[in-house]
Computed example of a mutant assay.
Amino acid sequence: MTAHYCSLAQQPAPAFAPGLAAERVGALMGGRRMWVNGTVLHYYFFDGDTDGSVIPVPGSAGTRRVSWVGGRAQRDVVRDCFREWRDLGIGIGFTEVFDRSEAELRIGFQQGDGSWSAVGRDALLPGLHERTMNFGWDLTAPGERATALHEIGHALGMQHEHQSPFAGIHWDDEAVYADLAGPPNFWSRDRTFFNILRKLDPAEVNGSVWDPQSVMEYPFAAGLILEPEQFRGGVHTPGGLSALDKEFALRWYPPLDTPRPPALTPFRSAALSLGPGEQADFTVEPSETREYAVGTFGASDSVVVVFEERDGEPRFLAGRDDGGTEHNATIRARLVRGRRYFVRVRLYSGWGSGETAVMCW
Score class of each variant (00 low, 15 high):
Y43Q: 03
Y43N: 09
Y43P: 12
Y43G: 07
Y44E: 05
Y44C: 03
Y44P: 07
Y44L: 02
F45W: 06
F45K: 12
F45L: 09
F45V: 13
F45C: 01
F46M: 04
G48W: 10
G48V: 03
D49E: 12
D49A: 15
D49W: 05
D49T: 03
T50S: 13
T50W: 08
T50K: 12
T50Y: 08
D51P: 04
D51Q: 04
D51T: 00
G52N: 05
G52A: 02
S53G: 05
V54M: 13
I55G: 00
I55D: 12
P56C: 06
P56H: 05
V57N: 06
V57M: 08
V57D: 03
P58H: 07
P58E: 13
S60H: 04
S60I: 03
S60V: 01
S60D: 09
A61W: 02
A61R: 15
G62C: 11
G62K: 08
G62H: 07
T63C: 07
T63A: 12
T63P: 00
R64L: 11
R64E: 14
R64Q: 14
R65C: 00
V66R: 00
S67K: 06
S67T: 15
W68N: 10
V69W: 03
V69E: 07
G71D: 03
G71M: 06
G71R: 14
G71F: 01
G71H: 09
R72H: 01
A73P: 00
R75K: 14
R75D: 07
R75G: 02
D76Y: 02
D76G: 00
D76A: 11
V77H: 00
V77E: 04
V77M: 06
V78P: 09
V78Q: 05
R79I: 10
D80C: 03
D80G: 15
D80K: 14
C81V: 05
C81R: 15
C81Q: 13
F82Y: 09
F82S: 05
F82K: 02
R83V: 11
R83D: 14
E84C: 09
W85N: 10
W85M: 12
W85Q: 04
W85I: 13
W85D: 11
R86M: 12
R86G: 08
R86I: 04
D87M: 11
L88M: 08
G89T: 12
G89A: 09
I90P: 10
I90K: 11
G91L: 09
G91V: 01
G91E: 03
G91W: 02
I92D: 06
I92S: 11
I92V: 15
I92C: 09
G93R: 10
G93W: 00
F94R: 04
F94Q: 05
F94N: 02
F94C: 03
T95S: 04
E96Y: 05
V97K: 12
V97L: 07
F98D: 12
F98R: 13
F98K: 12
F98W: 13
D99W: 02
D99M: 04
S101M: 10
S101V: 07
E102K: 14
E102F: 10
E102W: 05
E102V: 01
E102N: 10
A103N: 08
L105G: 00
R106E: 01
R106G: 00
I107R: 00
